[in-house]
Every structure is written in C-alpha cells, then in structure tokens.
Design a protein around this nucleic acid. Structure first.
Lengths: 241, 241
DNA sequence: AACTTTACGTGCGTAATCGTACATCTGACT
DNA sequence: AGTCAGATGTACGATTACGCACGTAAAGTT
C-alpha cells in the first residue's frame, strides 16, 4: 500500500522532490498496472485518484454530445493525471484513458489533497506541471488551427516518443484519428507519407520512430514550445530539487 | 493605490469573495484603463501584474517563429490575467493583449503571491478559475479540429457577448482572423453568412448580436461546456461566497 | 481450419479553406 | 474638401481534408 524503495521511481515529477517530501508522498502511493483503454477519469464523474505515470501514456480527450472527440492532453512519466483535484475541483468534462499500457503510482484523492496542503514544495511542483499541461493544450489548439495533418501527426508521434522508452510503440490509426480529430483514412494516407520520407516504419498496430530529427523537421514549430518550458521550469530548476 | 468602495466592483471573481478576504485584496488593487492592443503580458517576459477585468475583453494568444498565431484564451469580467503567477511560474510563451477596451483592477506580482499564500479562499477561487480557463483552451482545440469556420465564429461571438454588457462591440475581421486562426477573407465571407441568417449585424469595425438564440444554435456543441462549468464551480457554489 | 474481429489500404466525388490578388469603402486627419 | 490608412468586399484556382464505400489483411477464437 506504499512505495518504499526510492530507486524504482521513474516518474519525473516525483523524482524532482526533496528526500523528505518524497518520502511522505511515496507513503501514500501504490503501484498499479494500466491496461490499454483503462479509464482513469470518466467525464463529469468524481475523481478518485491521482496517477503519477511510471511508464506508458495516457490521453485526455474532450468530447461533445454530437460525438466529436479530440485529444487535449497527453501524459507520460513526465506528469500526472487528476490535475482538477489540485484546482479544488472534483470532476471535469474531460476523459482520461490509457493509450499505451504501463504502470503508475496511484494516490487517493484525500491523500493528495492533504499532501498538497502539508507539502508546499509538492504543491508548487504540481502547479508548475499544471501550467505546462495548459501550454500543451494551447499548443494543440494552435496545431489544429494552423498546421496540416502531416505536421500534426509528426508532432503527436514526437510527443509519444518522448514518453516511452523505446522507439517503437503500439498505436492504431483509429486511435490516432481520434487524437488528431480527423477521419481514419486520412491518418493511413499521412502515415504512408511519413513512412515514404523514411521517418517512421508502420506495422499493424505499431509504429516505429526511425529518423527522429527528420520527424522534428516535418513537425516544425508545431512541436517544442511546451517541451522547452517543461525543461526550463521543472527539469532544469535546481530550486525545486 | 487601493480600491475602497465595494459596490463599484464588477469583476465576478472578486465579488465571489467573503467580505474580509475581499477587503484585503481590494487594498492591493488599483484601477487602470485598458486600451485596444494594450499588452498585458509579453511572451517570455516576466509577468508584473495580475489584472482582474471589470469591463472589456482580453485575448491570450500563442504564436510561433513562423508567424502563426491563434487565440487560446479569452478573458472578461468573469476572470483575470496573469494565471502563471498562481502556478509559481514567472513568465509564459503566451501573449495577452486587450481586444476590447475597458477597465481592470490591477495587482502587483508580489502582492498577488503574498495574498495567494495568506488567503486560502482567494487561492482556491483562483485555482478554480484556472481550471475553467484550461477548459476554454481545450474547447478551442476541439473547435479548431472539429467545427467549421461558421460554427467557430458563432462560438467566438457568443463568448465575446458573454463578456461585454452591450449587444454591440468593436471588432475587425482582421482581429477575428487571428483569433480563429484563419485567413481574413474567410472571416468576411462567414460574417456575411451569419448576417444573412439574421443573427448579427456588421458595420465597419463593429458587430452587433441581433439573435443570440439562433447564434447558439449555429455554434452547436462548440459552445457551452466551459461556460457550464464556470456556473457550476464559481457562480453557483455558495461555499465560495 | 473455418470463422470473427480488428486493423489497414484505397479510391473518388464533395466540401471547406487557403492563398493571393485586387477593388472599394469608411472614417480620421490635415 | 482632399488625402490616406485601415477595413471590408469579391473572385478564383489550388490545396487539404471530408465522407463514404469497399476491399484486403492480420490476429485471435472455437
């Protein structure tokens, strides 16, 4: 019911904490498996847990009554789900589910709210992360409004690549079409374009990143702004450590 | 250098505070004029103030080196600028400027940070607002990915209408094209469609809302989700008052 | 091995929006 | 009243993506 050994922690937020804060927080965490399509947060249902991802990728999507859905956030070992709880909000219209299976360190809502109060450094860290999460959503809005499908797909693959250890990960065109808010055949065609350019290799339900620099070139300015801010505000800030 | 009389406050966040919290906060505010195109936050420059808008509308836009820009947030008397300061972040890549002139109650960065610490109710209120601001950005991402220009324009006009007192407000097609991330002639054409449907009336540099219900019909599900959450979490929550 | 499900490939007419160019109009300023 | 910059109106080919329909192919199931 609690995580003791420190060296097993792969979540980058938790690893930024001072030893005493980290110890207090680890005591409230337990490790859980995350399977593909597992739902971590139902829209408009009370949030029960915060998940600090260790491996794998989760997606936050917004949907409407008229069936439209689109991804507005992506979470890996650099972040956590359940941010509304940080904001004194019990539920959100957004849905969070597992895109690529993995593991997470889970904390109950009550424990999280308590630790946020008791550990200012933890609260500040989470708030900084929340800021960057907002930047990701904003960048997604920009991407959908201003970039082509090819650029957006390149961006998404880069973001996913940032969050998994390997160069290959399981993902279907169907899922990608929801993530990017386009129809499925469009994804297939665009994947072939990226594949033809030698940047990726696609198999059934899998995509492998072959030439990341070239992929970054294709994504252009649709990729990079929130990533740079994450490094500036979390990875590189010694004051947090 | 401070706001005394209570009945002059039109900002909806400030008016949700308990009397004692509000008094402490008003003491740190002063009233400023906001002219069209005034910049409240330069991208990547240190934030100096938080602005609680009384009248008028501000826009938050994200831009890239390759000159693309798009609105990712809109702020009126329901909200405030400078949210990164709430998140322990000194600057952001986003730019905030005045879209429709008005007035604001301004607080210095240091005063804001101090009051956030000293007044938990104030902090919780601001965090709830930050959550809803995030929903707005997410809804914008959805809109750009899934709705037509006509629907998105209708949505924007509704959001603007929510934030001004009158049915008419000054706005140019040029500005709208940046807000919506489309080219300017497209805005002109789409305005004519909305005008032809009898929902708005357009003059040089001005748009008047004539038939709001019909505009809501056109906007469809692109409009409404964050607005409903604002009502649930801020307007209707007596626990905050 | 037959069957079923899930995922991928492809084509094509249609719609939306872009990109660009240019004409016109309005209000402010001199 | 004349001038001018900013704002708006219009046109049109090019591009992108949609919407559907249908075919194929790979993995799991019995």
């Amino acid at each position: 019911m609690a995580i003791s050994s420190q060296h097993t922690i792969r979540n980058n937020l938790l690893s930024r904490l001072r030893a005493d804060d980290r110890a207090a927080i680890l005591a409230a965490l337990d490790r859980v498996e995350l399977k593909r399509k597992d739902v971590l947060a139902q829209p408009n249902e009370p949030l029960t847990h915060v998940h600090f991802l260790e491996t794998g990728v989760a997606s936050v999507v917004v949907g409407t009554r008229d069936r439209r859905r689109i991804e507005v956030g992506i979470i890996g070992s650099e972040g956590a789900t359940g941010l509304p709880l940080l904001f004194d909000v019990d539920s959100t219209p957004h849905e969070t589910f597992i895109q690529i299976e993995g593991e997470a360190l889970r904390m109950s809502k009550d424990a999280f709210i308590g630790l946020i109060e008791q550990r200012p450094a933890f609260r500040r860290l989470m708030m900084r992360y929340a800021h960057i999460f907002q930047l990701f959503t904003a960048q997604t809005a920009l991407s959908h409004g201003s970039y082509t499908l090819e650029e957006r797909l390149a961006r998404w693959l880069l973001m996913c690549h940032d969050r998994v250890e390997k160069d290959e990960f399981p993902i279907t065109h169907e899922f990608l079409s929801v993530m990017l808010g386009v129809h499925r055949p469009g994804v297939t065609t665009t994947i072939h374009i990226l594949e033809g350019a030698g940047t990726i290799r696609a198999r059934r339900s899998h995509i492998e990143i072959v030439d990341r620099p070239k992929l970054e070139l294709i994504a252009g300015d649709s990729y990079g702004i929130p990533e740079a801010e994450y490094r500036r505000l979390i990875t590189d800030d010694v004051a947090l450590g």
